[in-house]
Design a protein around this nucleic acid. Sequence first.
DNA 1: AAAAAAGAGAACATAAAGAAAACTTATTAA
DNA 2: TTAATAAGTTTTCTTTATGTTCTCTTTTTT
Lengths: 208, 208
Amino acid sequence: MVVLTRRQREIFNFLRSNHNSFARPPSLDELCIALEMASRGSLYKHIMALIAAGLVEPFTGNKRAGVRLTAKALKQELKTGHRLPFMGTIAAGKPIEALENRRSMIVPDELRTDKPCYVLQVRGDSMVEAGIFDGDWVVIEQRSYANNGEIVVALVDNCEATLKFIEQTPEQVLLVPANATMAALAYRPGQIEIQGVLVGQMRSYRSH
Amino acid sequence: MVVLTRRQREIFNFLRSNHNSFARPPSLDELCIALEMASRGSLYKHIMALIAAGLVEPFTGNKRAGVRLTAKALKQELKTGHRLPFMGTIAAGKPIEALENRRSMIVPDELRTDKPCYVLQVRGDSMVEAGIFDGDWVVIEQRSYANNGEIVVALVDNCEATLKFIEQTPEQVLLVPANATMAALAYRPGQIEIQGVLVGQMRSYRSH
DNA sequence: AAAAAAGAGAACATAAAGAAAACTTATTAA
DNA sequence: TTAATAAGTTTTCTTTATGTTCTCTTTTTT
C-alpha cells in the first residue's frame, strides 16, 4: 500500500472533512485558497500523490471535473435534509402572495418541528426588534391555534396576513409588532384566523 | 461512469434544487434566464452532457417537453445533501470551542455561497442590533480578508474569536459590535486574523 | 551534511465555457 | 391551410479557466 507523507495525509483529511462544504468539486485554485496555499503547482503534486494512492479520482478524461474523493475514500453519510414548501412572501397588511409555481427550500432540521411546516419570506419591518428583518425567511408550523407570546401568521378579516406576536383573551386578540414605530392592534376573536406559528428564521447576507 | 465538469455539476445541482420551482419543465431559454446565461447554445452543450450522463431526459423531438431530470437523477437528490461542517460555538472573547466529534448541519443553498462555508453557533449579545441573537446559527464563508462593513469572524491576538462588524484602515482594524452597551475596539492590523465572513444566519424558535 | 518534502511562482497548452447569429422544426394562432 | 412563434440545433469565434510542467528556494527529516 502506498504510504502518504504527513502533508498528503493532512490534505486528504481536509478533503474528507470539507468535501461537502464546497458547492461543487473544487478546482486546484479553489483548494489552494481553502488550504491557504499560494502555489497551485505545489498542491498539484500532493493531489497526484493522493490519486496514486487511490484516494482521489484521477483527472483523466474531463479536464474540469474538480478534485473528488473516490468512493473508497468516502465514508457514506446519510443525508436527511427536509425540503419544505415555499409559500411566497408575507407583508404586514397584505394577503400572502401565493406563487404560481410551487417552490421549495431545504430547511435544517433544527429550524422546524416534526409537524407540517412551510416557509415564507418576510417583507417589511414590523418585527425588526425581534430580529426578523425585511427579506428574512421564516419557517412556520402549520397550526390554527397559538399560545400567548408566540409569533404567528394571522389572517385578519379573511384577507390580510401578518406576522406578529399574539396575546389572546376571551374578549379580544392583540397582534403586537416588534417595532417601536408601530402600534399593537386589537381585534375580536372572530376576525383573526391563525395560520401558523413561527418556529424558525433564516437570513442571507450574500450580496452578489 | 460519466464524469461531469464543474460547470455541468453546477447546472445539475441547480436543476436538482430548483426543478420543482418551475411550473412546467423549463425550456432552454427559461433556464438561461434562471442561470443568468446569455447564450442558449452554450447552455445547450451542458444539457447535452447531462443527457449523456443519464441525468436529464433526452429531447425526443417534441419541442415543449422541457428539461426534465431522469428518475436516476431524482433518486440521487435524496442521497445528496447540503451539509456544512458545524464548527462549534463562537462567543465574544473566547476561542471557538472546537468539537471533538465532527458534526454537520443541513444549510439551504440560499444561505451560503459557492465558496467553502461552515456553521457556528453564536453565544452572547454583541450583535443583537444586527438581528443576530444568542443561540443563533451563522453561516461563515471561509476567507482571510473582508470588506469594510462586513460581519466577520476575527481571531484577536491569536487566541480569542469574535463576531463583529469590521472597519479597516492601513493603521488600524476596528471591530464594531451591534449593541449600544458595548464599545468598538481598535487593534493593530497584526493583531487581527480574519477567519471568515458572515453569509447567512438561522434561528430556531422551538421551545422543546 | 545530505536527502526528502514542501512551497512559491512563472510559463504553457488547451479543453471548456460563453456569446452571437443562423438554421430547422414543432406547436400555436389566425 | 397558412403564417407566426417558440424552441431545439448547429456553427463559428473569442475568452478563460485550469491542469500541467519547470525551476528555484525553503523547510523538515534522517
